[in-house]
Nucleic acid binder design. Sequence first.
RNA 1: GCGGGCAUAGUGUAGUCUGGUCAUCACAUAGGCUUGCCAAGCCUAUAACUCGGGUUCAAAUCCCGGUGCCCGCACCA
Length: 509
Amino acid sequence: MKIDELYALLRRRGVLWPSAEIYGGAQGLYDYGPLGAALKRRIEDAWSAWFLGLSRDYYRIEPSEIVPESVVRASGHLENFTDPEVVCEACHTPVRAETLLEKERPGGVDGLTPSQIGEVLRAHQIRCPTCGSTALGVPRPFNLMFSIPFGVDGEERAYLLPETAQGSYLAFARMRDVGRKALPLGIGVIGKAYRNEIAPRQVLFRMRAFTQAELQIFFDPNDFAVPFAEVRDEKVPVVRAAERERGHAEGEVVPASALAASGLPEFYVYHLVHLLRFLRDVLGYPAERIRFLEKSEAERAFYNRIQFDAEVFLESLGGFKEVGAIHYRGDYDLTRHSVASGKDLAASRKDGSSVLPHVLELTFGVDRNLWALADVHLVHDGERTVWRLPAYLAPVPLAVFPLIAKEHAAYALRLADAMATEGVPVQYDDASSIGRRYARMDEVGTPYCVTVDGETVAEGPGQGTVTLRARDSRAQERIATAELASRLRPTLRPPRPTDREVPAVRSVR
RNA sequence: GCGGGCAUAGUGUAGUCUGGUCAUCACAUAGGCUUGCCAAGCCUAUAACUCGGGUUCAAAUCCCGGUGCCCGCACCA
């Protein structure tokens, strides 16, 4: 589906809509409705089950999303996010205005408006340091962080975190002390990040407030053993940076062992494979629509030593789009925070020596994946529209209908209540015809529909059998109401990496 | 942010060029009748010209501005 069609469908069904809609909306801000909020929660639960399930030493915390200025100063965001920037129109290289003008205005550019900076650039015939052109663009402020007055007199400043990761770095010292002292230590956070984007676009793909699920793994660079044998034969679709530079953008599918042989650390490949398995086996993206794009040295942030973006091909957005990434950040973050705070952030080894941990960061865009799950699984199937979500991701896993509202409603309502009590989220519906009810539930991804009929009622309260109808096959079977919850519940639990066999994603029979 | 395009019920649309009936049609939604399993039928109801200003006897229609959306460029440390 195209972006407008998909977005209209999601709005109509109450999955999501523009924030402040009655005032004309606000760019880059969205509200999730009942279905969207439920789906998002299930994505987050599935992420937690999978990634925190990788190790007993991976924990989930919930740090503050507002931080004092000292934090963003240390992390480098203040410097990089607030200076006016000029882009060369000839070679497209972005340069900070301050760098260009350091000879002419040693005092810096603070206090000048962007257009004043532009005048100074022209007056002095400043050239692009990369290509020498004088065709420099109009400077513009580069303040992608939201700042807020902080404290009673409002003289201090605080910032909304522009990336979730910082919360984990701040928490490392405490976690090191309250948890096991040994590395590796994983800190998982599902939280919001805030960026005042210049051009929010494509609905959930460029938002001003968005949810990231991130796992920061702190490890000893000399000792990070992983059970690599478990993943060595996995086929991984990659687009290597070196190949791209030679003009080969198609990518290739190679075994994990070959990636490790090419020089990537085993711990890196191991986690990359688990991100692949999560996208493919848990979220159900078809293998051929997933790829890992390696970022070259020029493309990646300077502190990243290795970076692969996980991308999924999205029809609605016309190409492969980033939905997650895996960054080897080295010791950049802890070094910065250690120096700025004056605190020792080293961890101790078993032999008593100490080491400043390195960080492997697994990031996952929750909103983007919610969109991707709609793009990939919400399809027109002949006459009907079906959202083929894995059962454990479905916002409403079960619907209960009376075949004839007048005759079977009382029984059906009791059954729906009983299922809710059993822990199976359920929706009751007796409006219009049975076929239309099935169709409505198909569209919001409900994998199971149960219909109470005359036979059920005749069999008596708590006794009867009902028809259980599967979303994808539309096949029906007769099942005792007493067995319903125990039958469905296992399919509603998201897979963990330790499951002996990851259940097939399309487990809805 | 720059350039181009667009904006009519919940959704998709007709009407806009050429100003002038109670703004078209379909689906949807709600209620009723009917209905023993996949968007059936009949009746009834709900509901829109993105916002603000201007021109005019008269504006969905023409003009200006705001807001939002789409595409391209740039940005995404």
